[in-house]
Design a protein around this nucleic acid. Structure first.
Lengths: 345, 345
DNA sequence: CTGTTAGCGCATTCAG
DNA sequence: CTGAATGCGCTAACAG
């Protein structure tokens, strides 16, 4: 009653009537059933076209069919980091005529463990978990309910599950090693949120590189950040207060690296002459700022695409259990890094 | 058959059975119908809780009810511009327990005029059109189908329809006037995509300010861009080739302003001493770059929120036809602008 | 106040 | 190859 405003619906029945067939037949041509005379199929198709018939997805979903919608659970939408991943997801989805339903963490992380699966009841065929924080909450329920899902960018510390991530460890290692090879010996590191696997891995990569090159790790040269610009600023400021400040600072993401740059400049130090700065992510802005930022590129869009492909694959063939895929990161060398020019290094 | 993997469904019937009532009663407590004995309601609620019952939205939707999902049609997801708007939408939506379905232009802009309405058939209660290009295509059909929608950031040149935008004209005017008052007389302007209402309005604002202050408009000082960084670079380069180059450049968005800055620097000119630069949007990076960018802030998140509120309002009360709302832009003065220091101005 | 019933639009047997 | 009948889970109208 209240929805006189819904689009005037042309149902399978009306098509059937107009095409002089039963609704069963119409259903068959819709679903490309073989058992339809070519001539009949032709006629029905024509009528569907003419009447602008569109299948009602609710009804179809009710029958336990696929909805052709997949859900994505993301932390937020404000960062270009998520944007990159989403773009990949969207691209791949549209290739396969799937639609996207978006959920943000803040709404559901409340406490209900099984809420995800429930909420998603019949609404979506599968779920893409982007950068989940308390991953076990979801994966347990999801696995138990046998609900198809793929995790993006989270190194599961729990049970193995379908996931795609990036080689964060390698990225951290490579960037650090690059700095070392440039001649840096005191390298400050600003972490991301340590509850995220990727943050931990980047830190581990940093440490490994140090170890490999026989550089002792200084606790005062590791600052715990939270991926936000102020953390970068604060971390760099702390480093620069040190009796022996680092000659290079490696921030766990580009946004924090921007904060680092600010802090460095505010002390009238030059980049890279006095301090080299490295970021992580390769967000578009890192190429645009001055000096342009040396950083570790994450294949964000590709991660989105690959994860989507995996999920679609699982949907098609639930038995074949795929596992974790790691996409390579790549060190992008720009102009925020150089050999240390002052003797302190 | 293929979906043994769907979450094990506990239906209204099972709850009814366990609670020793009819399914009708269960439906009533779900929908907060008054005609239920408190004691009964209690018991049924308990059982629902215990069984982790969750309403099947498909079935509910089938009955022509609200789905509690609204759709957003966006051009893409990669820009922080869209991110800002989406954030507002999402925030407001979650306040009202609505979910979000996301569609991107590229998938549907193809050609089918009524595809939007059709696709959306029963899937969503309403539609948010973010920055639509060929707006008439949608609004016509949508209006004809009486499908609730709100347009975000598009000054309709066609029929009036519910919309929220920003005061682009005013923003263009204010920024230009600010430059004029700083002493600039030759001000280059780089437009956005001219098929977008906001781009046209910004240009008009620029022109009006010029006219108000009796500065003749030079055709060679208006460069048509497309909101991408290379356009800013190209536009600025063109300006700087001029016999009498401008002393200030106003780009229709921040991203192009970054391009402008690059071009200026590449000619060894200083910002703002030689050339002042102004952008539009106030994306996060504009505060982070060096020099920080003077720009016109758009209330992106608020636009998302207000539009969502409007849509939800329309959903509740279809008759009251709301109209266009314009949210104010604001000039943010930073360090990329100053009075012209060279005599050429 | 509560139980019963009729569809919503569609896929899917089962008969022809 | 096609038509008729059944039910997915739920709401709403109708009887008690």
């Amino acid at each position: 009653m209240e929805n006189k405003l819904l689009t005037s619906k042309v149902t399978i029945v009306e098509v059937a009537k107009k095409a002089q067939v039963s609704l069963g037949t119409v259903s068959r041509v819709i679903n490309n059933d073989v058992h339809v005379a070519p001539e009949t199929r032709e006629r029905v198709s024509a009528v569907m076209q003419e009447m602008q018939y569109v299948a009602n997805r609710q009804a179809r979903g009710l029958k336990g069919m696929k909805t052709n919608v997949i859900g994505a659970l993301v932390p937020d939408l404000a960062t270009s980091y998520i944007g990159g991943i989403m773009h990949g997801i969207d691209t791949e989805l549209s290739l396969h005529k799937f639609d996207l339903m978006l959920f943000t963490h803040h709404r559901i992380a409340i406490k209900e463990a099984s809420y995800v699966a429930d909420m998603v009841q019949g609404m979506v065929d599968g779920l893409l978990l982007v950068l989940p924080r308390n991953i076990a909450d979801y994966t347990d329920t999801l696995t138990r309910h046998k609900f198809p899902f793929v995790v993006i960018d989270h190194q599961g510390s729990g049970d193995p599950c379908p996931a795609v991530g990036a080689t964060n460890w390698q990225g951290g290692y490579n960037a650090t090693e690059y700095l070392i090879k440039q001649g840096h010996k005191r390298i400050g590191f600003i972490t991301g949120s340590m509850d995220l696997g990727c943050s931990q891995d980047r830190l581990k990569g940093y440490r490994s590189a140090l170890r490999t090159h026989h550089i002792p790790e200084m606790p005062e040269l590791v600052y715990e950040g939270d991926f936000n610009q102020p953390d970068g600023y604060a971390g760099a400021s702390a480093f620069l207060e040190l009796p022996f400040p680092p000659t290079a600072i490696f921030a766990s993401n580009d946004v924090m690296a921007m904060g680092v740059m600010d802090a460095v400049r505010n002390r009238n130090l030059r980049i890279p002459d006095d301090i080299s700065v490295v970021g992580f992510d390769n967000i578009p802005q890192s190429a645009m700022i001055n000096p342009s930022l040396t950083t570790v590129q994450q294949p964000l869009e590709q991660m989105g695409r690959v994860a989507t492909q995996m999920l679609l694959g699982i949907l098609k063939n639930p038995k074949k259990d795929v596992n974790r895929i790691e996409l390579p990161t790549e060190l992008i060398i720009r102009s925020s890094t150089s050999a240390p020019k002052n003797g302190t290094g």
